[in-house]
Design a protein around this nucleic acid. Structure first.
Lengths: 182, 182
DNA sequence: ATGCGATGCGTCAATGTGCCGCAGGATAGA
DNA sequence: TCTATCCTGCGGCACATTGACGCATCGCAT
C-alpha cells in the first residue's frame, strides 16, 4: 500500500479561528485534522489512529491552561511529531512550562498560518538572539506577573484579584484586552 | 575526607547587582562563586574546577555577546547542576531558547534572592498545584522594576522613560509620590 | 555665547480604576 | 429538587491617572 500523506493536527476550540487556520494551512499544502476540545483530545489519545500526525498545533486559549495538561500525553503518543503551542495569552511562565513539557516551540497569537508553519520548521534555538534593546515595559511586566499569578490560581479571576490586592473588575478588564504589546 | 560544600555559581557582570545578590544568597546559606564576564566563563569552562557548583545563575545581560551562547557548554560541563537563566530583557523567544538549550528555568528581572532560589527549586511545570507564595501586587512590582531601570540609567528620568516606553511626565509623577503602596 | 538635553510643573482631554449592583452558571449539601 | 455559595461578565458612575503639549530653568560641552 502507498505511503500515507503527512498531516497536521490542530487542537483548538475557537471555531472561527480554527476554520480559518484549516483553510490557510490547506492552501499551503497541509491536510489538517482537527480536535475541538480537551475531551476530544483525551479520547483521541486513548486510541490513537494508526496514521499519526507529523505536526501538532496545540492552542491553549481555554480558560486556565488545561491545554498544558495535554502536552505530556501528546508528547508520549507522538514522540516524533513537531508540537507547537499557540496561545492568545502568552507569558514567559507558560512558555517555559510548555517547552519543559515537551513542546517544540511556543507562539503567541495573533499568528498567521505562515508564522505557525515557520515556528514548526525553525526549531533551532537562535544563539545570536541578543537581548531586546529595551527592558520590559511596566505594562509587559505587569502582564507577565498577572499571568503567573493567574496560573497559580488555576485561572480563578476572583482569587487572583484578591491575591494581587486589586479589584476583580479591573483584572477582568485588563484580561479582556488580549494583546499586551508593550 | 570531608564532603565539600555545595555552592552556587553566579555569572553576572553587573557589579552592584551581583554584590547584592552574593550577600543576599549568602544570608540564605548559599556560598557563591562569581564570574564577571563571558571570557571568565570561557576559561572556567576550559578547565573546570574539581568541585562543581550545584546551582548556576546565568545573567544574560553579559556585555558583548549573548549569554545564551554559553548555555550549551555550561550544560555539558554541568549535566547535573540546576541552571537558572536570569535576564532584565526578558522575552518569550529567549525564554523558549534558554529552556531548549538546557536551562532549568528562566526568570525576568527584577528578581529577589528568594525569587531566584525559588525558581531554582521549583522546576516542575505548573500543572498540578500552585506555589503558595504571596504574590507581589502589580503596583509594587512596577515600582521595583522602575527603580531598577532608573538605576541602570543613572537616575536619568528622561532616558528611563524612553527605555520603559512610558511618558516622561508619568514617570515623573510616579516618582514624585514616595509611598510605594502595595 | 549658543545649542542640547534634562528637569519640574501646569493644564486639559482621554483613559483607566474603584466600587456598587445584578443576573446567570456551576457546585455542594440538605 | 431546592438552596446557599462562589465565580463570572458586564453596565454605570465618580474619581484618579495618563498622554500630550508647552514653558522656564539649569548644567554642560562646544
Amino acid at each position: 500500500m502507498s505511503e500515507q500523506q503527512a498531516y497536521l493536527l490542530l487542537i483548538d476550540d475557537d471555531e472561527s479561528f480554527g476554520q480559518l487556520m484549516v483553510r490557510a494551512l490547506a492552501r499551503r499544502g497541509w491536510p489538517v485534522e482537527r480536535l475541538h476540545n480537551a475531551n476530544a483530545v483525551e479520547t483521541w489519545l486513548d486510541v490513537p489512529p494508526p496514521h499519526l500526525p507529523e505536526r501538532v498545533v496545540l492552542d491553549l486559549n481555554l480558560a486556565g491552561d488545561s491545554g498544558l495538561r495535554l502536552l505530556p500525553r501528546l508528547r508520549e503518543v507522538l514522540p516524533d511529531s513537531k508540537i507547537l503551542v499557540l496561545t492568545g495569552f502568552a507569558s514567559i511562565a507558560t512558555a517555559v512550562d510548555a517547552i519543559k513539557l515537551g513542546a517544540d516551540n511556543y507562539l503567541a497569537k495573533p499568528a498567521s498560518a505562515d508564522d505557525i508553519l515557520h515556528a514548526l520548521d525553525d526549531l533551532e534555538p537562535n544563539l545570536e538572539q541578543a537581548a531586546p534593546e529595551a527592558p520590559m515595559s511596566v505594562r509587559r511586566l505587569a502582564w507577565e506577573h498577572i499571568q503567573r499569578v493567574l496560573a497559580e490560581h488555576d485561572g480563578n479571576i476572583s482569587a487572583t484579584a484578591r491575591a494581587l490586592n486589586m479589584h476583580r473588575r479591573t483584572l477582568q478588564r485588563m484580561l479582556a484586552k488580549k494583546p499586551v504589546s508593550r
